[in-house]
């Protein structure tokens, strides 16, 4: 491995890009300079912190700490899914649907990869477990928030149609089937696109990182393929679980459409 270590000065040069962009935004009255600087600062601090956390974690490799960190990741991702919803469920379902689905899919997929594919020892070895879970969770989060958002918006817009279908005696699964199918599709499109474009249009970040760090390209490619498949599995199953749970929640025990279970969008 022949990584060229980056000095603070090197990063400062790259940071000039952000500063220049902010200056231009100010001059052209685009109004994103504040958001740009805050998010750049946030990512710097958050990444350094996680770097320190990972450093400590890799040295100790205690299962308790791995479990704690993954729980924090899950809760933050669950909150993120919730706040991205234009019409989210009231009560604990707003947080619960996305979080539960991410737990079911992202965790299962990552554990499967660790146990069956990579075969790390111990299986929760943080050097593998945390980055893998991070990548799967991040993408699953996107798919689930897109899918849920589409489902609740669609059901609201097509309320009269859904209720007409209920009035014709259709059960809730059939009455909501069009919206559910569309929502799952929307949630899965980004990863399908990413897989199609990988290698030709875009070099995925993880592979690029490994190559920069000195891994032979073909090894890096194999890991990238693994990660792509894990992400596709996590996103696909997660979106299906989340959209199906949410679709069920839109109807009550009498199979009435219950849009009052959604919070009105604020604007």
């Amino acid at each position: 491995m022949n990584v060229i270590a980056l000095s603070p000065l090197d990063l400062a040069v790259a940071a000039l890009l952000i500063v220049a962009l902010g200056g231009l935004s100010l001059r052209m009255h685009i109004g994103v300079e504040r958001q740009l600087l805050v998010s750049a600062a946030r990512s710097t601090i958050q990444l350094f912190l996680i770097g320190l956390v990972l450093k400590v974690l890799f040295e100790s490799a205690q299962p308790v700490w791995v479990a704690l960190l993954t729980t924090v990741m899950l809760v933050v991702a669950g909150r993120e899914v919730m706040v991205r919803q234009k019409r989210r469920f009231v009560g604990c379902w707003g947080f619960g649907v996305g979080t539960l689905s991410m737990f079911v899919s992202a965790f299962a997929v990552t554990v499967m990869a660790l146990l069956l594919v990579i075969g790390t020892d111990p299986w929760y070895a943080p050097q593998y477990a945390i980055p893998l879970l991070g990548m799967v969770l991040g993408n699953t989060m996107n798919g689930i928030s897109l899918g849920l958002d589409r489902l609740t918006q669609d059901a609201t817009q097509r309320r009269q149609i859904i209720e007409s279908r209920l009035a014709l005696g259709q059960d809730w699964q059939r009455a909501i089937s069009d919206s559910r199918r569309e929502a799952i599709r929307v949630g899965m499109i980004p990863i399908i696109n990413a897989m199609s474009a990988a290698g030709i249009v875009s070099l995925p970040g993880m592979m690029t990182g490994q190559i920069l760090a000195g891994t032979p390209p073909v090894e890096a490619v194999k890991y990238q393929i693994l990660v792509m498949f894990l992400i596709a599995g996590g996103t696909g199953f997660g979106t299906m679980v989340a959209v199906s749970l949410a679709a069920r929640r839109l109807f009550d025990e009498r199979q009435r459409l219950r849009l009052d279970r959604l919070r009105l969008p604020k604007n």
Partner: peptide
């Protein structure tokens, strides 16, 4: 659904 099949509502604006 079983109830709504026997006691059928026809809404004013068809969907």
């Amino acid at each position: 659904p079983a109830w709504r099949r026997t006691v059928a509502l026809l809404v004013a604006e068809s969907q």
